[in-house]
Simulated scan of single mutants.
Amino acid sequence: MQAILATLGYVLSPDGTRVLMIRRDRRPDDLHFGYYNGLGGKLEPGEDVVAGMRREIREEAGLECADVELAGTVSWPGFGRNGENWFGFLFRIPSWTGQPRQDCPEGTLVWTELADILAGRVPMWESDRHFLPLVFAAQPRVFHGSMPFSNGRAISWTYTLA
């Protein structure tokens, strides 16, 4: 399977109770328009996943990552606008420096209560609710999941813990 390689990162507040999310509200043609999402994007040629995650956080939020923790990976066959396959490396960013920028090109940056994210009180991809409890577990373990999509919706979810 050929897939688009991407990163998805969750910047945590210093006390761990909030997450810096992007409310995707800049481009109406955005596949994620109207949803809250973590920060991230496609890897560039020759870039490793941690370097890509750091670059995306810097570009989207203006922050420098001090720590980058691999939470897991997710394969999203059929996810893209035209049915492309995506493979994502998901990270927690528990420490960082700088101030979140006010002019993120992807949308509005919003500090969002972790409890609201996990309770489903934040507009996001319905499918994110399957893996976010693993990302934010009290005793996190690296996971590797598969979430096939058809017609813009997840049709299943499986994972293993490393």
Rank of each mutant, 00 (worst) to 15 (best):
P14V: 01
D15P: 01
G16I: 10
T17Q: 14
R18V: 01
R18A: 09
R18Q: 15
V19Q: 07
V19H: 07
L20C: 09
M21D: 02
P28Y: 04
P28N: 01
D29P: 00
D30R: 04
F33S: 09
Y35T: 08
N37M: 15
G40V: 04
G40Q: 07
G40D: 02
G41D: 00
G41A: 09
K42D: 15
L43N: 03
P45K: 10
P45M: 00
G46P: 13
E47D: 03
V49T: 12
V49N: 04
V49L: 11
V50S: 04
A51G: 12
A51C: 08
A51Q: 14
G52L: 04
G52Y: 15
M53Y: 14
M53V: 07
M53D: 03
R55V: 01
R55T: 07
E56C: 13
R58V: 11
R58H: 15
E59A: 11
A61S: 14
A61H: 10
A61L: 07
G62Y: 01
G62P: 13
G62F: 10
L63I: 08
E64D: 11
A66Y: 10
D67E: 14
E69L: 14
A71V: 05
T73M: 14
S75P: 10
W76H: 15
W76V: 05
G78D: 07
F79M: 03
G80R: 03
R81Y: 05
N82Y: 08
G83W: 05
E84C: 08
N85Y: 06
F87Y: 10
L90H: 10
P94Y: 13
P94M: 08
S95D: 09
S95H: 11
W96D: 03
G98I: 02
G98T: 02
R101T: 11
D103Y: 13
D103E: 15
C104V: 03
P105H: 09
P105W: 03
E106F: 15
E106L: 14
G107D: 07
T108D: 02
T108W: 03
L109C: 07
L109A: 06
T112I: 03
T112G: 03
T112V: 01
E113F: 08
E113G: 09
L114W: 03
L114N: 08
A115T: 06
L118F: 06
L118S: 06
L118I: 12
A119M: 00
R121H: 10
R121F: 10
P123E: 04
P123G: 02
M124Y: 02
S127F: 13
D128T: 10
F131P: 00
F131D: 02
L132C: 06
L132F: 01
